[in-house]
Write a protein that binds this DNA or RNA. Structure first.
Length: 208
DNA sequence: CCAGACGTTGTT
DNA sequence: GTCTGG
DNA sequence: CCAGACGTTGTT
DNA sequence: GTCTGG
């Protein structure tokens, strides 16, 4: 799954990369945790993209129990209402996965693109305290598989615009959901500094 | 995702 | 895995 | 007890 | 153990 990621670029750069508008304050973070704000890109009906801040995780209550929906399995996403009407892209420098070394010991790894930036496919909603989002997941590719069985849905450059376009059909959207090629990614072990959500520093991504 | 806190009865 | 229904 | 469902993940 | 917060 994807429960922690980093995004340390400035808003001006993100606006350029995604041809998006929007004036938001973003200090950058190498360790974005659930409930925390992150920049997301949404396409408005006017076919213009806008950067907004949204919280990681959709508050859900099901059968009396509430929890944060951090991820949605892409295999099950197409029937959701938000899949049809509230898609977003989450820019990320990289994401973290934890390897179960033993029942009590988990080793974090950092996964990042060899070039450029990751664009996670996401869904958003209006929560009580503002916008919030969830990240779609897919089966892990060969690079991630040894560490964890799932990974975020990562969109290529062209796929980003199709994903965001309000008039894309469900059939078109389904084609965009595929494991990102392992050959375009890299990974390394990182220290457990990332474990603590209060550490936002670059040391989170330093190779161990 | 991980870290950290944890509250009622009523005494091994 | 957990939860529900039979 | 098992079968089946379940808007997160999760399995030695 | 479970629950909450980041």
């Amino acid at each position: 799954m994807c429960g922690r990621f980093g995004q340390a670029r400035k808003i001006t750069e993100l606006k350029q990369l995604y041809a998006a508008e929007g004036n938001i304050e973003w200090p950058g973070s190498y360790n974005i945790a659930p409930t925390e704000l992150a920049p997301v890109i949404i396409e408005t009906t006017s076919q213009e993209r806008e950067l907004k801040l949204a919280r990681f995780g959709m508050p859900m209550t099901i059968k009396g129990k509430s929890f944060l929906l951090l991820n949605v399995q892409s295999e099950k996403a197409a029937t959701r209402e938000d899949f049809k009407f509230r898609r977003c892209v989450i820019p990320a420098d990289g994401f973290y996965e934890w390897e179960k070394v033993s029942p009590k010991d988990r080793q974090p790894y950092y996964f990042s693109p060899k070039q450029g930036i990751f664009s996670f496919a996401g869904l958003w909603m209006q929560g009580r305290t503002g916008l919030c989002f969830t990240i779609l997941t897919v089966s892990a590719n060969e690079l991630v598989q040894p560490i964890h069985g799932r990974m975020p849905v990562i969109l290529g450059h062209n796929a980003v615009y199709q994903w965001l376009a309000p008039n894309s059909t469900v059939e078109t959207l389904k084609l965009l959901v595929e494991p990102f090629p392992a050959s375009l990614m890299q990974s390394w072990k990182v220290s457990k500094a990332v474990n603590s959500p209060s550490n936002k520093d670059i040391i989170c991504i330093n190779s161990l």
